[in-house]
């Protein structure tokens, strides 16, 4: 097939129309989230996020996801059965810091060195 100038021009026009459509397509989502002060704290620090067995094996995945999205996505974390949690390490520590050695005893045994406590205050650091 021979590509002529006309084909190129038509192609470019179609492409730019598509791109323009994409750029200027109004999406209602942008910046239309109501003030967080209005609907007060969804934080729930009194019940378990997931069954103990699951948390024991998968807490690092969950915490990693919360760490990566927590700062920029203001929506709370919703579990499969509809419970809502603020994505924050403090949500967990609300209960679990009652045992000062809750995190460290296991991590020390497994020689896991998570970087959480570089910034977050571990129950051990708290006065």
């Amino acid at each position: 097939m021979k590509i002529t100038k006309r084909d190129i021009v038509i192609g470019l026009l179609v492409l730019s129309a598509l791109v323009a459509l994409r750029v200027f397509w109004p999406t209602a989502k942008a910046e239309k989230i109501a003030s967080p002060i209005a609907k007060a704290t969804p934080i729930d620090s009194t019940v378990c996020i997931a069954p103990t067995e699951y948390m024991r094996s998968h807490h690092m995945q969950l915490l990693n996801e919360w760490r990566n999205t927590g700062a920029r996505d203001s929506r709370p974390y919703v579990t499969a059965d509809g419970k809502k949690f603020q994505k924050s390490l403090d949500t967990c520590l609300g209960c679990h810091s009652s045992n000062t050695y809750f995190c460290i005893s296991c991590h020390q045994y497994a020689n896991a060195k998570p970087t959480c406590w570089n910034c977050h205050l571990s129950p051990l650091d708290k006065p």
Partner: peptide, 21 residues
């Protein structure tokens, strides 16, 4: 050019932020 066109269609968040007129 075709690549750019296709990718902007496939990856909706690619390069372009969501806009609100």
């Amino acid at each position: 050019l075709a690549g750019i066109g296709v990718s902007s269609g496939l990856f909706l968040n690619f390069l372009l932020e969501k806009t609100d007129a």
